[in-house]
Design a protein around this nucleic acid. Structure first.
Lengths: 225, 225, 225, 225
DNA sequence: TATGAATGAGACTTCATTCAT
DNA sequence: TATGAATGAAGTCTCATTCAT
């Protein structure tokens, strides 16, 4: 594995380790700066100049860490998608064995990640001019990947007889969409909901369409609006 | 009203009427050209010169009908939103009196408009750099406006006892979102669904969460996946 | 032929003709400006900004006439090579029937073109970073094309028994090289020679290696140093 | 002489000698790296970072040995010209006493050096932006210096009555040019000639223009094509 | 002596907008 | 009303050079 190889090299050469650490830190600094610019100026005005200024470095430096603007933007997005890959499974594991509890935890996990990266999420919805075909494909792939845990949970719940026999992929994608909406339509939903309320309300709506009548009573606490 | 004023002027001066008609026709020609360019090149690459070329006119001319690129883009979006304002009520009216039928017709209406203007819809999700605060507010307002018929239908259905007592605005916005998703995530859903299947499947999912148990049997045809 | 087609269109639409004329004039203006910048700053410093400034136009305008810096530089070179294609055959035709006279006229013709475009000639010897593979191939092709009249004359002279049986292509390329040298090594040769002297001296050297002994007397006027 | 001064210091301080040796070695390493980069990427793309990478050292180090990019490029060229200064006299000395043999050996010597440094030769023909007036003068001077042995041989041959009474400097420069052409127009001549054939053919052409008729027989082996 | 991260000027290119015709 | 040539600001990216370590 490459990480093992890296460890080897790192063990052999502490200098290299330090350098890699600094490099990673810079990457993160630049990613954060890019996110902050998006936050401030709207996700379209992310000029390299602006990112450099925000990070307090020179333009040239960015190009030591990201080959192009594409790569930087892609990295911002991938960064979010990787957060999903870590946070959602963790939330599911912490939720116990019950299918509904697990689904609820997963959905809440998604929403939390999106809330953390609200502006980067919006970025995903822009077919950036710079973002090339390959980059777009990469993002789509990762997004689908991201929906995987949800569809698995749905399938489990269906098999367990707790959920109606729905198309798991479609419902999973709908849930993703509703989570995204907290970022995309934040200006709308924030009028009515706090973050917690939003999660609860949307979960209730979704579960009402999913949970079999005979199990409704058991999950009442998720089903009240 | 400005339209009344226009009518007055028109009545008094037939020349003016002809001129206005020509003007409107040009506007439409340019809007269509812009939409076609978006369709072809992706919604980010809409340069004024490209629109001019597509419309077969000069760049300068565009500026006689739209004050700026912003205004043109805004008009493209407004154009779609106005299509909703026309098509959705028409669909509802044609659907008879039953709350579920009416909701189904409305949702299908939304989806049809979006399918007609897939690329313009995506445009809505891009906060254009130029699109200024005022423009963005205008779009948000119109979008909310757009959800109004749906929330009214939901409210009606709830009062009639057909739907569960949900938050009508939230559910309406979710439905809108799912309709938008046909454009936004077209690359994903087109793998599984034809347009008709998509509408039917999403409607079934939504109604399963809405229709009261005691009315399920009656609307079985909407509820099978 | 495209020129016939152009004529047709031109005949039908005098406006188009005028526009094309203006366009051609601009092209020429920009080509001249580029050549002048090369003249002044050395052939490496030809920035688009500099060309624009020299031509007294904006940078953007250049891009209406040349797709890229490549294209502009290529056009400068092609311009020279086309001058060869016109001037050299004309010089040959004007020189009568004698093989040596014709060769002398051709060589002088080459040198005159080079003297007219001294700096553009130097440009040919720079593998410009921007000039891409295709452009370089194009230039090489045209350069070979350019040597064609000379090698034909050499072949004629050999067949007529006036020249020794040399490899015509090689000798032609050598002559080309010597003509180029008037530009490339101008700083050296101008110490010793005026343009006329240079041509005469080089011609004499070349003919001494070419003309068969028995014809030496006849061409004495070309052979004295 | 500066070398005498160096020797003095060296005698007094063996450490200094070692240091100088290391210094010279580094210089050579960097020069070679630069040449290799030019070879690989074309003589225009020689960035300092590329040279550093090729040499396996840091960018900063180059600046301890060469004050600027100019200086490095100049050194690459001077390096070639010094190769001439060593190799050509050696070739002449090894050739015996005959004027034609000596000239032939000298010309072959030139060509061999050029063949060894084909890309650096091309570099000479590019007035580098950075290469300043002083540097350019230096190169011109060295180039003229380089032609000196040839013109001396020509003068000798003329005095000995073997060559026609030509202008030795001009003919020497022409020979230099033809040798350079092996690099400059390699793409052309390599179609027809191997290196050996090229040297032989060009030498034959040149000698045909030089050797007095009465000596032709004696040098027949140089004069056949 | 050596490193290589960091700088920043400058190059190319695009495109919204203007204006003379 | 219509044209389209012209503008120039702004954006992306490169690379010679410096400097703290």
């Amino acid at each position: 594995m490459s990480s093992a190889a890296a460890d080897d090299a790192t063990l052999l050469d502490p200098d290299l380790a330090a350098r890699n650490a600094r490099k990673e830190q810079r990457r993160r600094q630049l990613l954060d700066a890019a996110a902050r610019v998006m936050e401030r100026e709207g996700s379209q005005a992310v000029s390299m100049q602006a990112v450099a200024a925000e990070a307090g470095v020179s333009v040239g430096l960015i190009y030591r860490y990201f080959g192009s603007k594409d790569e930087l933007l892609l990295a911002v997005i991938v960064n979010v998608l990787e957060d999903f890959a870590v946070a959602v499974p963790a939330a599911i594991d912490a939720a116990g064995d019950d299918p509904v509890e697990r689904l609820a935890a997963a959905f809440r996990g998604y929403c939390e990640v999106i809330d953390r990266h609200r502006h980067a999420t919006v970025l995903t919805y822009r077919e950036s001019k710079s973002l090339d075909e390959a980059g777009r494909e990469r993002i789509k792939e990762l997004e689908v990947e991201t929906s995987r845990p949800l569809s698995r949970l749905l399938r489990d719940g269906i098999e367990a007889g707790v959920f109606r026999p729905v198309e798991p992929e479609t419902v999973a994608y709908n849930l993703l969409l509703v989570a995204h909406a907290w970022a995309l339509k934040h200006w709308y939903f924030e009028r009515t909901y706090s973050f917690d309320d939003y999660v609860r309300a949307q979960l209730s709506l979704a579960l009402h369409g999913l949970v079999q009548p005979k199990h409704r009573r058991r999950y009442a606490r998720f089903l009240q609006e």
